[in-house]
Design a binder for these strands. Structure first.
Length: 818
DNA sequence: TTTGGTGTGGTCTGGA
DNA sequence: TCCAGACCACACC
């Protein structure tokens, strides 16, 4: 029989010592399909020159191996740009691959071994050219269902289809609530949300509960009911917000205590925690668990405005809906006193609902990435940038018959880390002050286009051809790249860039809210992620395709081109206000907005005629006004800090305290307001007035603690800090009171009154009562510095702001020194 | 087991 | 007590 399957998950097992791949997905009727396929894995040995045959024979006559060697072949693959003969060793049991490799790796005939640490199912997907989250066609025989599926096929043939139709995917969002009572964690609610389902399973019965609440008398019943619902609902995907690190971790622990088998996959096995470095991922086969928080944290956070990645913040940014406010402390209190249970239920339901809503945005992005890099969504959604790039390159290597380089061992990584960093981008010191009628131009994808246009690829480094040396040596370096061949990385980077351009063209012809537009948008976003990460990947010590010289050369050409256009701009009579890496900000005295736009566009056109390859300057836009300020120390203009006012009256703020999470909201908002007044209303006096009022409010104790909370991340184990800053001290205090603080935790703290250093007075926000804050600190260290950063550029000083117009402020001025 | 380098600024620390 | 330098976090591109 033949069946088309939308592939959602892949796993494997070993049956009779043979590896069997399990592909799981849905067909067009929405039936659950399991496909089994026997598959044999392999690895390569690179023989020393001329030792191919002897190595082959030696391997063939190996005895006492934990698995059978099925074949030993001499094949050819491309290695560092050259054809290289390799011995391919195919074995029966994929779990024993490392044993076989270990048995031969130190032989004198063996120069090196390759592709021995690629997961079995990734090997399969690459070899069969199959993309997860897309349609495949399976031909084979129907066999008995041993799993909870509608159909099991033992495949003879599997091939990738080119159909774009999106199948019906059933998503179930899960959230749990726990309270700690007398040192014991109690599971009090599990909430579930899907397109149609809204349910809260509660460990309590109460009068007037909502219709979506089901009450159970024990945690055991609660968990069992949850598993029962999942079985009935048959979701394809379960989404959580931090399920890996919290909900499923706790649920499994609790289930273990209660001796309940906890799992919801199609194979009936227990939920498994797959180790991934420090973290672990909660996995069941077939019902794909996606932890939205992990994906947001690793991939999306870079492009989000949210400074803290709570469900609340992220959901409000991505879907415009926030969380129902209920603090943990309050919840415990309500629960203990058995009051307002409706509110807890409401809160829990809302969390699951938000998680579900978020999935409608995140899952299509994850699917798109999955297709591009060829990994299952379970893995894709948990990958970092470098892992995504690497997955993509590995897939392309197999397609191109290129040998995949090994991952560096610890020792190699350490040695790479000891290398000196190379020189990066150019940042031009800005011209301080307020400018009017500014045009901004930048290079479209500068680094990717340089890599492509200058043929930057590890295997093409220093080919030695005179022509390449002459025409393609990176500026300020001794390195050149071969232009007689198409490099592995430029080739596939070019595909991404071209594809993205093509997608953007198509998108222009579609209405922005159409489903088709969104699909294309997700794909262009996936290509953007991978292509933008390629440059950094060159210099990443953990990379298989690590090559510092490639990163160095890319940056060197970057400097070359930005300098080149800056010179051309000057020659064209444009005044350069600022520039960073790939952009220049210009103006011309006497030109209005329309005129500067015209000039800039003309300039871009002229420049592009001279730029090689696909390197291209783009006109970004014009701004009515902009401000650049001085550095705190000295007179020079501060780089990476500016604010621009665009034509529709929006402020684009970069680098200022306003956009940093380690400043309190009050200081940030005050600074934003100052920028706004200065740029929009051109009324610095009013801005000063505003700051004065803020200070007054602060002194009078009228400011909410929330506005004074500072957020900072803990980036290493607390005992490893050499310098105990405020956030570290606050973290220590939080830990003393039983809160869990780990690497990556974001500490929310407030500086309180009292004696001692700032650190001594830093308190986790949850232990701070309303009037405990140190107004003096917030005035001198938060509000004033933030506001003055801007106002100093207009000639104001601290005294101008603190000039005692009110007696209160005058007193304060006398009692503090400056 | 955190893609790169460039840059700003706050707080702590220890020696003068 | 003062201050330079180290440490640290976070932003920009």
């Amino acid at each position: 029989m033949r069946e088309k399957v939308f592939l959602l998950d892949v796993d494997y097992d070993v049956e009779n010592e043979r590896g069997v791949i399990f592909l799981f997905g849905k067909n067009k009727e929405g039936k659950r399909i399991l496909v089994k396929k026997e598959f044999y894995t392999y690895f390569f040995a690179m023989p020393k020159e001329g030792k191919e045959e002897i190595l082959k024979q030696k391997i063939e006559s190996l005895k006492n191996l934990p698995t059978k060697i099925l074949s030993v072949d001499i094949i050819t693959k491309n290695w560092m740009g050259n054809e290289r003969r390799l011995v391919k060793i195919t074995i029966q049991n994929p779990r024993k691959l490392k044993d076989v490799r270990d048995a031969i790796k130190d032989w004198e005939e063996v120069e090196n071994t390759f592709e021995y640490n690629i997961s079995f199912y990734k090997r399969f997907l690459m070899d069969y050219r199959i993309k997860p989250c897309s349609w495949i066609e399976v031909e084979g025989n129907i066999v008995e269902n041993k799993f909870d599926v509608d159909l099991t096929i033992e495949a003879k043939e599997i091939k990738q289809l080119d159909e774009n139709e999106e199948p019906q995917i059933k998503v179930l969002a899960v959230d749990t609530e726990w309270v700690e009572i007398e040192d014991k964690e109690k599971l009090i609610m599990i909430s579930l949300a899907s397109e149609k389902l809204r349910k809260v399973l509660a460990l309590s019965e109460w009068q007037g509960k909502q219709e979506f609440v089901e009450s159970y008398a024990s945690e055991e019943r609660l968990i069992k009911r949850f598993l029962e619902i999942v079985k009935q609902e048959r979701p394809d995907i379960i989404v959580t917000y931090n399920g890996d690190g919290f909900d499923f971790l706790k649920l499994r622990e609790k289930a273990k205590q209660l001796k309940i088998k906890f799992g919801f996959g199609i194979d009936g096995k227990e939920l498994e925690f797959v180790r991934r470095g420090r973290a672990s991922a909660a996995r069941c086969f077939g019902v794909v668990h996606i932890d939205e928080y992990v994906f947001v944290d690793k991939i999306l956070s870079a492009s989000l405005k949210s400074e803290i990645l709570t469900l609340d913040e992220v959901a409000s940014e991505l879907i415009g809906e926030g969380k129902k406010e209920l603090e943990y402390k309050q919840m415990v209190e309500f629960w203990k006193e058995r009051k307002e249970l409706n509110r807890i239920a409401e809160y829990s339901m809302w969390d699951a609902h938000l998680t579900y809503l978020l999935s409608q945005i995140l899952l299509p992005q994850i699917f798109s990435l999955s297709r591009l890099v060829g990994e299952i969504p379970f893995d894709t959604s948990r990958y970092t940038y470098s892992q995504l790039v690497e997955a993509y390159l590995m897939k392309k290597a197999v397609e191109d018959n290129v040998l995949i380089p090994n991952s560096p061992k610890t020792e190699e990584k350490e040695s790479r880390m000891r290398e000196l960093p190379y020189k990066g981008a150019v940042v031009v010191e800005p011209k301080k002050g307020i400018h009017e009628n500014i045009a901004v131009m930048d290079f479209r994808s500068l680094y990717p286009t340089i890599i492509i246009s200058h043929s930057i690829s590890p295997e093409l480094l220093n080919c030695g051809h005179e022509e390449c040396k002459e025409k393609n040596t990176a500026p300020e370096t001794r390195n050149h790249f071969c232009i007689k061949k198409v490099g592995f990385i430029p080739k596939h980077l070019k595909f991404l860039i071209d594809r993205r351009k093509e997608l953007k063209e198509k998108m222009k012809k579609l209405p922005k809210n159409s489903p088709q537009y969104k699909i294309l948008d997700n794909e262009q976003y996936a290509t953007k992620i991978i292509s933008n990460a390629m440059y950094g990947y060159f210099g990443f010590v953990g990379a298989r395709w690590y090559k510092k010289e490639c990163g160095e050369a890319t940056a060197a050409w970057g400097r070359f081109y930005i300098r080149k256009i800056m010179q051309m701009a000057q020659e064209a009579g444009l005044e350069i206000i600022y520039g960073d890496t790939d952009s220049i900000f210009v103006k011309k005295e006497g030109l209005n907005l329309k005129e500067i736009e015209e000039e800039a566009k003309k300039f871009v056109e002229k420049v592009n005629k001279e730029l090689p390859g696909i390197i291209e300057l783009e006109f970004r836009g014009v701004y009515t006004r902009g401000i650049f300020v001085a550095r705190e120390k000295g007179e020079s203009g501060a780089k990476k800090r500016y604010a621009l006012l665009d034509l529709s009256g929006n402020l684009e703020i970069r680098g200022f305290e306003t956009v940093r999470r380690d400043w309190c909201k009050l200081a940030k908002e005050t600074q934003r307001k100052v920028l706004e007044i200065v740029l929009k209303e051109k009324d610095p006096e009013k801005a000063v007035q505003f700051v004065t009022e803020t200070i007054k409010r602060l002194k009078e104790g009228k400011v909410d603690i929330e506005e004074l909370t500072i957020y900072e991340q803990i980036t290493k184990p607390l005992n490893q800090y050499e310098q105990i800053g405020p956030h570290v001290k606050a973290a220590m205090k939080a830990r003393e009171k039983g809160k869990i603080v780990t690497e990556g935790s974001i500490i929310a703290f407030v500086i309180t009154k009292g004696s001692g250093s700032i650190s001594d007075r830093a308190m986790p926000v949850e232990f701070v009562t309303r009037n405990d804050y140190d107004a003096d600190y917030y005035i001198k260290h938060q509000i004033l510095p933030a506001a003055l950063r801007v106002l100093k550029a207009l000639g104001y000083t601290e005294e101008n702001i603190l000039k005692p117009k009110t007696p209160g402020l005058g007193m304060w001025l006398k009692n503090s020194k400056h």
